[in-house]
Every structure is written in structure tokens, then in C-alpha cells.
Design a protein around this nucleic acid. Structure first.
Lengths: 286, 286
DNA sequence: GTTCCGCATGAATCGATAG
DNA sequence: ACTATCGATTCATGCGGAA
């Protein structure tokens, strides 16, 4: 089946079976969180979530290239006063399925939903769990480098004498050498904490994450013309991000209304493409 | 056994058995992370970590008051290219043990050391996992309120032009006082993402977390004269924090060298106490 | 054309009320 | 007793209209 630059209507548990093996470079998705009120996907309850997800992640494991990466954006809900355990149970289950749990990024949502409760504060972060098929995978770190902040300059000036020598003598891991290289540049590598605000005032399409989020990972894990898949593509944000950056996209969505939104947005990209040849760098701000 | 304001030498698996039931208001600790180097801290390997921790958490559950809270600072190590699963397995095991997994705070470490690996970025966050005995527990949210974001920024920029110069010419340090005046009027509740820099090199003791971290949770979960326990107290940072804030402390440490460091620091607190009657508020900055 | 202010809007959660 | 619905609470962001 030809999968490039298409949005498929249906349950990804079915559609993915038609995808060829080892055909996708990056999977970025934010599946519907466990929610009893949710109508789509039959309203997956927290207790059933792992069993519901595993057949889909099994297909994702098959179609991902050996050098590819799977980024899963998810957060556990509060159920009966406790954080539910379905997310961490899912990680363990996917490891048994054959996935490698390489890393967990934190998405620090600078503008989380307001509210006050006697026993907890506002939830200001979500998980971005990185799974891989092999220990060796493609990663283009220099594509997401960020400018050195003021705090970094101050810290580096402090490091110059004491910490530098201390680290070299203590561990011998060559930190001091790296620091000296760092000084001459104005760009540094980011960390595994990503600071981004949610887009909460978009009337045309309500994306659950800002488009800068998939763009950051597309930049990090793919090159132009690589294939980016979102099996729960929703209003098409991941596909739009891929298209704007010259990557091939593939999207799957079970809700017909969202399909139309995606296609409209992607059509606009086609029109605008000549104007955005020079993609401007997007930096996360701390 | 009398436990108040003492540091015990020994393995907390043994010492805790002497503690009476329901005697502690807050447990804050950063246990030795699983480490393959067998020499430090007795060397708990990642695969054995859960089994090693569970007898200790069982005692902690017994001695915690029904209204108390357990904050566990931990982060999984990278083993063979993967994040090891002992932390999330520990959460599941402690739930079976009877703990409620109320929340997971993120400690965003603003200044981690630079470093570079081909397959991952610098690790800039740690988990602060909140466990409780009951759904109802003590929480004093107003004690950790922070200045409102945008409003504070605007006022700061205004102050930098007019008021700042005026106050600086007067006293030299009047700027801080000026800020504290309008800070008290516009405070909001924080979130579950805590921004704190790691403590810089300290000659006498190398703490794994800044003292502001236990102070933040002591402020949030206890009142004066409540009991704060750290079963892996190390160089005594948690105990010092509790003492400085007028709480009773109890600490357990297996390494005799650390015991001396703790006692020295706590003795200094006793001397300084009259001078720090008025505890200044500590705000986390984003 | 800038800057400023008002206002709607979010992957939310708790507790009370109703069936 | 157990589930479903609803109101109250709360704050960073971006838009549009006003000065």
C-alpha cells in the first residue's frame, strides 16, 4: 500500500496492518488519553488502556524502520484521588513487546489548565516517551541546538576555574574539555526538558499540542523526505509539521470530522509551500 | 524510642523498626540510586532495587501518620542504552504495599552539567513522587505560593527604570525589599513542576539536592513542630532544612562519615537559630 | 503603527447533587 | 452504595479592539 502523504480514515489497529514493514522513520503521536467520557475509540477506560494500546503498538513496532524512533505523548489521569498506573504499566508492557525505552522527555506546559483543589496543584507537565527498535537509531542533534541563555553564560564564567578542574580530576570523563569547547559557541544542545505553551485559542482546529512540539522531534530524528507517521493524527498537526519541513507524512484518524480539518490544513500548506522554502529555526525558550 | 531531633547511625531497614507507629508527618528522602559500582552506598544493582527498597518502604508506611506524606526523590539510570524500569516497577510495588500514588512532581534542574552523547541529551529532571497513606492528608498550599507570571514581569521591567535606581541609591539592597512589597499582593499557586538549580560545589558536604527542595515540601506538608524524617539523610540537608524551619527532624544514615557532617551542620544551626527567627520566604523562579 | 487592556479558552479535578 | 452530571475553582496565552 502506498502510504506517503495520505490521511487514512479508520482505526489505526486496522489501517496499520496494511503498512509495509520498516517503512516509517518517526512515529509521533498523542493517543486519546484514557477517559470514560470519550466517545471515540469506544471510550477507553483507564483499566483497559494497556490492553487497548498493545495491538496498536505491536503494529507500530513492525512498520518502524530499525533506525527509527517512536515518541509517545501521554499523561496519566487522576482517578479517585490517585495518579492511575496505566502509563507506567504500558511502558513495561511495551518493553516486553520488544520496544526499547530509550528516554523520557518532559514537556513543561507553561500554561496548564487552571483550577484549585485541596490535595494537588495544577498539572504542568506531560510525558514524551521515546521508544526505539534498536540501540542504534538516527539522531540529528545539531538540528535542535539552542542559543546560550544568560544563565549559561554566568554559569560558565563561574565554572572556569573550580568546577572544570574538579570534574577532570574526579571522574576523568572529559567534562572540562567539553566546557571549553562550549564557551566559543553561541549554540548549545538542549536537554530532555522541553518548555512549550499549549495553543488554547485556536478557533479553527483545537490541537492538543503546539505544532512546535512535533517539529522539534521531526527536526531531531528525521531528515528531509523521511517518513513521519501519526496514527492518531486528529486535526493533522503532526502531518502539517512534517509537510512544512519537507518530510513525507502519513496520518490515521478514526473521526471523519477531523479528517476534513487535516485535509484543509494540508491543502493550505501546498499553496503556501513556495513562500516558506526557507524554514526558520524554532527555539524553545526557557 | 525517642526519635525527635536525632541522627541515627545504621541501616534504616533496621532502625525504622524501633520507630513507633504513626509518628512522622513528612518523609522526604533521596535514596541511593541504583548503581552498578558496587562500592558506593553498599551498591544496589538496578535489578535488585525494588526488592531492596520494599522492606524499607513497608516500615515507612507503618510509621507515617495517616495525614502524612512521603516524597521520594529518584530517577532511573541509563543501563545498556535504556532507561531502567526499576523506578516505575517500584511505584507499582508500593501501590500493592498499600501506598497511594497521589502525584508525581518534576524537579526541573536548571543547571545540569554540559555533556554530549550520540543518542541522548543531558538529563535535566528528576522525579519527586508523592505517596500517601490516605486520600485525606495535610497540605498547606498557601505556604508555597509564588508571584504571578506576567504581572510580575511587567512590574519588574517598570521597576528597573524608575524605582530600582531610586532604592539602590538609598540603601544598596533596597531593591529586594521593594519587590517583596508587591509580591505579597499578587500570589498564585505553583504547579507540579518545580524549577530549582542544583546546588553548586560545597566543600564540606556534597548534597544531591539543594536545601530549598526539602524546604519547599516541608513548607507545603508540615507545620511548625511537626516531625520530618529522612531515612537516607546523607550529609543532613533534610534535617538542616527542618531545623531551620522550626520542625523536628529525624535522620538515619548508614555511613559514619556523613553522620559527623550532619551533626556539625545541625550544631551550627543551633548557634545561628536566634538570628534566623524570621524565616524569609523562598520562591521558585521559572 | 505601537501599546495596552479585556476576554475567551484550554487532555483538569473535586465535591455535591441527582438518579 | 455506586455511577453520572454539574458547578466552582483558577491562570498563562493570544486575539481583537481601543487609546
Amino acid at each position: 500500500m502506498e502510504i506517503l502523504n495520505k490521511i487514512f480514515l479508520g482505526d489505526c489497529a486496522d489501517i496499520l496492518k496494511e503498512f509495509p514493514d520498516n517503512s516509517v522513520d518517526l512515529i509521533f503521536t498523542s493517543p486519546p488519553y484514557a477517559d470514560q467520557r470519550q466517545k471515540t475509540y469506544g471510550g477507553v477506560s483507564p483499566d483497559e488502556y494497556v490492553d487497548w494500546f498493545l495491538p496498536r503498538s505491536e503494529q507500530l513496532l513492525r512498520i518502524l524502520k530499525p533506525t527509527g524512533t517512536f515518541i509517545l505523548n501521554i499523561k496519566e489521569r487522576v482517578v479517585d484521588g490517585e495518579r492511575h498506573s496505566y502509563v507506567i504499566e504500558l511502558i513495561l508492557a511495551m518493553k516486553k513487546q520488544g520496544w526499547l525505552w530509550t528516554e523520557e522527555f518532559i514537556w513543561h506546559k507553561k500554561n496548564s489548565y487552571p483550577g484549585k483543589w485541596p490535595n494537588r496543584f495544577r498539572d504542568n507537565w506531560e510525558r514524551l516517551i521515546q521508544f526505539n527498535k534498536n540501540k542504534k537509531f538516527n539522531m540529528y542533534q545539531q538540528q535542535v541546538m539552542v542559543p546560550v541563555g544568560d544563565w549559561a553564560k554566568d554559569r560558565l564564567s563561574n565554572l572556569s576555574q573550580t568546577d572544570k578542574t574538579r570534574d577532570e580530576s574526579k571522574v576523568g570523563s572529559g567534562f572540562g574539555k567539553n566546557i571549553s569547547n562550549w564557551l566559543g559557541r553561541n549554540l548549545v544542545y538542549p536537554t530532555n526538558v522541553i518548555h512549550m505553551a499549549t495553543e488554547c485559542s485556536n478557533r479553527n482546529h483545537s490541537a492538543v499540542f503546539p505544532i512546535e512540539l512535533p517539529k522539534w522531534f521531526i527536526r531531531l530524528f528525521t531528515q528531509p523526505n523521511d517518513v513521519v507517521l501519526d496514527p492518531f493524527v486528529g486535526s493533522g498537526t503532526t502531518a502539517v509539521a512534517a509537510a512544512q519541513m519537507g518530510r513525507c507524512y502519513a496520518g490515521i484518524e478514526i473521526n471523519p470530522e477531523y479528517i476534513d480539518v487535516s485535509l484543509n490544513r494540508l491543502t493550505q500548506i501546498q499553496i503556501q509551500l513556495p513562500d516558506i522554502v526557507e524554514e526558520q529555526e524554532i527555539y524553545q525558550t526557557s
